[in-house]
Amino acid sequence: MQTHSAKRVEITIEAVMQSRLTDALKQAGVSGYTVLPVLGGSGRSGDWTRAGEIGRASGMVQVVCILRPERLSVVLERAFAVVEKHIGLVTVSDCDVIRAERF
């Protein structure tokens, strides 16, 4: 089957910043994204877990989007403006998609 090269951007960020990040992605022309819950983890800011938490302050989410390679730079610039000062992680990896017209 014919596949097409694309970029997969995964941004793990504080839950309180989720809507600001997805707004920035939309403004950068991202056609779609997926938000995943993150159960817990450990990093420079210490260990954390979602268990029993009732507020959003200490939670994290992961936002995943697939892009055409030529859109990567503008999307990262917009996303970085939101995540720069916050706890989180941004990774970019290569992937293949079947329906390129959707991205």
Partner: peptide, 22 residues
């Protein structure tokens, strides 16, 4: 507070250490 304010502070003052206040 440990529900409403921590969330607001993470948005408004992200440079502050959340582990301290919480």
């Amino acid at each position: 507070s440990y529900i409403a304010v921590p969330a607001a502070m993470r948005v408004a003052l992200p440079e502050a250490n959340p582990a301290l206040s919480l």
